[in-house]
Every structure is written in C-alpha cells, then in structure tokens.
Design a binder for these strands. Structure first.
Lengths: 394, 394
DNA sequence: GTTACTTTCTTGACATTCGCAAGAAAGTGC
DNA sequence: GCACTTTCTTGCGAATGTCAAGAAAGTAAC
C-alpha cells in the first residue's frame, strides 16, 4: 500500500529524488532525457533540478560528444547533469564469520579506501570495537574536498530487519536478536543502516552495477553459501516473512544428495558451496588436509575426479538458476561469487545445464558472469546506506 | 517506469479508482476505514467517493453490526460503502483444447450464468463461432436490472500478449501469433481483453479470492498442466520476456525422471500432471485402457502401486512449491487444480514434503487448498476484463 | 428531554505539483 | 546577419491532496 507515499530522502520533492536516482544509476543526462526517462514534462524537470544544483548535489557539464549521429549538432546544445559524487561520503561494512571488510565510498558508491580486519571472536562484543576501529581509520582518509561522512551501512548474512536494525538470526555468526544498527551507530557515531548481505549486494548491482536499468533481474552469489537476490517490479523481493531468495536451499537432489546444514538432503548449497566442494574433493582424494586452493590447482592440472566434483557443482547451479528463471522470468541473471577462481571450472556446466532446462522465452534472459570480491560486498552495504539516506522516506 | 501514471480506468480520479478497488476486494467499508487503508485523508475520500455514488458504482449501506466491541456504539455511526455489483456485467471465456467455458458475471465477478460448449476443432476458425454463440446465449441471460455488458475476457494457456491481444504461441491449441482479442471482439461485438489462463486465475484470486489482501502470494494449479501465478509487490509477475511462473518445468528429477513434452527429463509436469499420472498408472497396472477416473478409484480402493504413483506426484509438487516458497517467500500459497478429485491422495505428501524443504521463516506461509473447477477459470478471464476495464489506464 | 461527548463525514482555504504553451537561449548552416 | 532547430525557462491554470473547523448523528448520563 505504498501508493502515494513519496520517497524523498534528503530532497525537497519527489521529482528531485527521482531525478537524482536516475542520474545516479544511468549516468549524466540532459534535462530532456530525464523528462523522457522519468515520464515528467521538461518544465517539471527544470524545477526539480534547481534545488539539486543549488545544494550542489548535481552539476552541469558542457555535453557529451555523443559520437554517433551528427543530428545532435543542430539545435541548442544540451547541458548534461551529473551527480557530484564527492558531495557526500559513506562507509560500508560487511561482517563475515572471521573478518570485517569496510570501504569508504562516494555518492556513486565508488570505493576510495578499504580496510580489512580479522575478528578475534564472533560475538557482538568482539565485533563492535573492530567496526569502530576500521570506521575511524577510514574517516581519516576523508579529504577536505570529499564531503562529510553521511551514513554507514552494515551487512551480515542471515535474517535481518532493516526497519528496526535488528539481526533476527544469523547462523554464520551465531547471533539472535542483536540490535546491530543501534550498536554500531553508538559505537561509531555515524547514522547506521543494516541489511542482509545478499540484499545489499543486489541493491548495489541495481543502482550501480549490471542490474542498472533492468526492472527485473536476479543476482546469484556462489561461495561459502549460495545466495540469491531477486529484483522484480524494480524492487528487491523481501519475502512476506523476511525470507526470500533462498536459492541455496531449494532441493536439487532431495533423494540421494549430500546432507545440508539445514537438515535436508540435496540442497543446492550442500552440493555447490565452497564447503561442499571441499568435502567432496577430500572424499575423492582421501586427503583430509585438502584446501580450496589445492582443489582448484588439482582441477586445473586435469585431475578427473576433482573436475567431476566441480562439474557436479556447476550442474547443480545450472539447475538452480534455471528454476529461478522459469519462475520469475528475469531479464538478466548475474552470476557472482566470493571465490571467483573456480569460475572457469563451473561456467561451462552452468551455461549448458541452464540452457537445457530454461523454458521457452525465459531463455532470452542474459547470463552475466561478474566476479564480485569481498570489497564489493562492503560496497553493497554502502549502497544500502546511500539508498536509504538519499532516496527513501525515513 | 510507471511511477506517476495514474491507472484510473473509467473513473475520473486516481483516488476514485483506489477506493473502488479497495471496496471490490476488501468488501464494504466506511470512509474512515478507506482513508486508513488507502493512506489518504478522510477529506480526500469524501471527495473521491462522491462521483462513485453519483454514477451509482457504489451505495451507502446503514452499517455492519460489528459484533465484537461496543466501542463502536459511541460516536456517529459509520456509513459503509459497498460496490453495486449489478452495475455492470462481464463475460469470461476460457478456451481449452476441446471445450469452451464461459460465464456471465457482475462487477464482483460473481457468476450468474454459465455455458459449456465442445470444440469441433482447435483452429481459430472453428473456435470463434463457438465463442460467439455462447456469448450470445449468456447475453440473453442479462436481466434488465443487471447493467449492460461492459467487456469480455478470454484466456488460453500459453504465451499471450495482453497489450496487443495476440496469442504468441499456445502448444495445447497449436496456435501461433493469433490476434485472438481482435477476432473475438469483431465476432461478438464486445470489447475484449486477452490474457494467459493462469495469470487470469491469479488475478481473480488476488481481487476476489484467497489472495485478497496479500501483497504477495502464489497460486499453483495442478491438472492437465502445472501452472503457477506469482504475485509480488501487489502485482502478478509477468516475466521480462513474457514467461514466468513456469513451475511445471522446473527440474525435479533431471537425472532419471520421465521425459517431458518440453524435451527435458524430470520436469514437475512430467511427474505430477494428470497425463503423467495416467501414464504411470498404466505402466504399473499394465492396463492401456486406464482412465483418470479409474486411477482414482483404484487408489481409493487401496491399490498400493497406484497410491505410490500419487505419492510420487505429491512428493514432486511438495518439492516444487518449497522451491517457490524459498525463492519468493510469499505470504500464502494457494493450491488448486482442474481435477480436484485427487486432492485427498496428494495433499498429505505435498504438505509433508513442503514442510521438510521450506527454509526458515518461509515456512510461516499459509498453504491453502482450494479446488477451482473450470468455471472458476472462466471467472478468471472475467476478472481480467474487470480489472482492465475498471482500474487500468488504457 | 436536555446536555455532554464521541466519532464520522463535509467543506472551505491553502499548498503542492504538474502540464501546457509561449518564449528565451544557444547553438549550426548559409 | 538571418533562418532554423533544439533545449531550457517561466507564467498560468488545473488537479489533487492536507489541514482544520464545523456540521451531523448517534450514545450516555442526568
């Protein structure tokens, strides 16, 4: 029932917020293009843009050359509007089970500094000082032409409530009902937003990445777990009860598949996560000291049994994304992961199985592979903070 | 990019359309309740309601007794507003491979007359006269206190384009690029809208059925095929390329499952559709003359092998809806089907397997079983016509 | 019965926002 | 310098919505 509510964020009018969002995710544009794009008249755009110029959130740039048609040379040259990305700074923090990744970004979520720090323990008492420290360090990197630090976004895996800022439960961290946003805010003094890590990454891709411009797309992350963010009708699906995109736990081999941490057999995550691959390679090689890095090396050396493990994983992922594609019919699927080194081993299988099992016109969806290292996850948290601060009613 | 466009349908203002829609799907309400519900001020509601009263689309009714609290006795009694369902009439037509089902309905999609007619052949030339005939017969049932016939909705299975009114392809009917809406409109003289049959049924459930009030839900239909309509963010997912909700073709037993018509192995539809069940029962009984009715009878008599066939189908459906639930996290799942007689055989397995494989809080979603006979499918087509006519910009 | 009280509904004044249309601005091409 | 084209701006009116005051319609108490 959000018809009529105008998400305006820090801006005076809803139109201004729309203009700003369009410029953020689609890049510099003239007022005419903005009008076409947003569906308002040029007059409305002119009026909406003025306060953005006054507040120095956007600037006019002469024009883009626009190499193709020379049509563009006749008539009054357009002035493009671009976001002044340096106008504000944000920090994004992704908390994993053993490490904290933090980035300092501008308004466009471009990273200007990064910090990693190991976690001595997983409880909130141990995590908070680390977050406070990296925040303080990143703050030190703020130049004087870099706008003040506006907000901080934190993301963790698990069930989070973005509204109250509580981590309802996070199995990786072993947390239950932790008021993380409040704790981080008091520890750092920076206004803090919290969200699920995959949702944050999805929002980042939607605003600034491969999802920009698509009203529906799916982001799949393969790594320690298997995550999935689904955007439909221009919004991330949140799930009526806070759970959605659990691609990792759809049944792929429910009869005879490996045991999953959730209690079932044959979940995608039990077949294709890093942990599952490591487990299977240890089994086929009999080497209990096996590491992920050596798994990769063996596969690249041509070890048939190890390659078969990766093939099975790729097969399972292909089935999983075919299921998503058949159900939601996205315009794009973005495949990404923390451990990107294995892509060459997985991609062939994934694409082939996907192509086999996707139905009808759903096959027209693009399959994009986009390795997203851990810093990108922290960037996702920053994107959440940007979105919440700049374009959401609060 | 539909921000800002105001779907107003036949009404003057967007607010009026919102009021009408709320009254349609949530039943009679006072102006105060409407204001709370829609998120407008009472003043705005008063103004929006007046033309609806003038045009006799809604009427004031004294009040509902509201049995619970006696709080409601103090203060000025509220006047409830109800839709005058008899104000307009609609016809819904569902075309299957061998029969046409048609219903005459009022504004609330309540059925006042039905017609079935067999199809002599499947080509459009054979279907159109039948549609024209049943339409004319239903028109004859229009009483003089029943408002004039406003629109007609047709639904078929397959890939349809609601905007142009073309059936892009329908494998059941063997049609490709048939301008069905135009053809029906010229054959009957009634403004016609076309949509996919499952999407139509989903809209009907959303407006008038078990999906009313839920901003996300999933409708699963089991029968000749396996269909699925997904509502997220208050809208049916359409799919970027026109395909979505293809639950029937998600891989359940891709390794060793039965062959599906789509070319793959182990699609849900190849395991749990009527046809698949019939095929399997024929195999285990060795009786090639087996019919669906006798399958049911055998199962009810306790035939272990036949019951196992149904159990496998229920198992597969349970896995399928668990996959949907894990991905989109709906607040409800409505299980329905053309052939409802088998529910008692399937439901136990479905619920058990679903409960096993649904992840975390996604398990909080309600699982509602709602047999929907064929007339309800025709009603769905009428609901599409109602929605398109009354509440959509066009 | 009259009066106090509570809630619903209505109405007038005002604010916001947008589109339309006219025109100002800023180029190219001749 | 002039014709032309496209972009941007501005004045005005229409639509829509909120706020606040008050009218309306009942119950409850005296």
């Amino acid at each position: 029932m959000d018809i009529g509510v105008a998400p305006r964020g820090v801006f005076q009018s809803r139109a201004a917020a729309q203009v700003f969002t369009a410029l953020l995710s689609r890049g510099p544009m003239s007022r005419v293009d903005l009008a076409r794009h947003i569906g308002l008249s040029q007059a409305a755009i002119t009026r909406a843009v003025r306060p953005l110029l006054d507040d120095r959130y956007v600037a006019e740039v002469p024009a883009q050359p626009d190499r193709d048609a020379r049509d563009n040379l006749i008539g009054r040259p357009a002035l493009a509007l671009r976001v002044r990305a340096e106008r504000a700074a944000f920090i994004g923090v992704k908390i994993t089970e053993d490490e904290v990744f933090a980035v300092l970004t501008d308004l466009r979520a471009e990273i200007s500094a990064t910090r990693h720090a190991p976690l001595p323990a997983r409880d909130a008492g141990a995590v908070l000082p680390v977050v406070a420290t990296v925040t303080e360090e990143l703050r030190g990197h703020l130049g004087r032409n870099q706008g003040r630090l506006r907000a901080l976004g934190v993301s963790v895996s698990g069930d989070t409530d973005p509204v109250t800022g509580f981590v309802r439960s996070s199995s990786f961290l072993g947390w239950h009902d932790v008021p993380l946003a409040y704790l981080v805010q008091t520890a750092t003094g920076v206004p803090t937003t919290l969200d699920n890590d995959v949702r944050a990454l999805t929002v980042a891709e939607q605003m600034f990445g491969a999802g920009a411009g698509a009203s529906s797309f799916v982001l799949v992350t393969v790594g320690a777990g298997i995550g999935c963010g689904i955007v439909v009708h221009d919004r991330v699906i949140a799930g009526a009860h806070g759970v959605a995109g659990e691609l990792g736990h759809i049944p792929i081999m429910p009869e005879d598949g490996p045991q999953c941490g959730c209690g079932n057999r044959g979940c995608l995550e039990a077949i294709a996560s890093d942990h599952a691959i490591l487990r299977d390679v240890r089994r086929v090689t009999g080497d209990e000291g096996m590491t992920l890095g050596r798994c990769l090396a063996l596969a690249h050396q041509g070890n048939t049994e190890v390659r078969a493990v990766y093939a099975r994983a790729g097969h399972a992922i292909g089935l999983g994304i075919a299921a998503v594609a058949n159900l939601v019919g996205p315009s794009r699927i973005i495949l990404s992961g923390e451990g990107l080194a294995a892509y060459d081993l997985l991609e062939g299988q994934i694409r082939q199985v996907f192509a086999e099992h996707v139905f009808g016109a759903a096959a027209d969806c693009e399959l994009i592979v986009r390795p997203l290292p851990f810093d990108e996850w922290a960037r996702g948290a920053a994107a959440i903070a940007i979105q919440r601060t700049m374009t959401s009613a609060a």
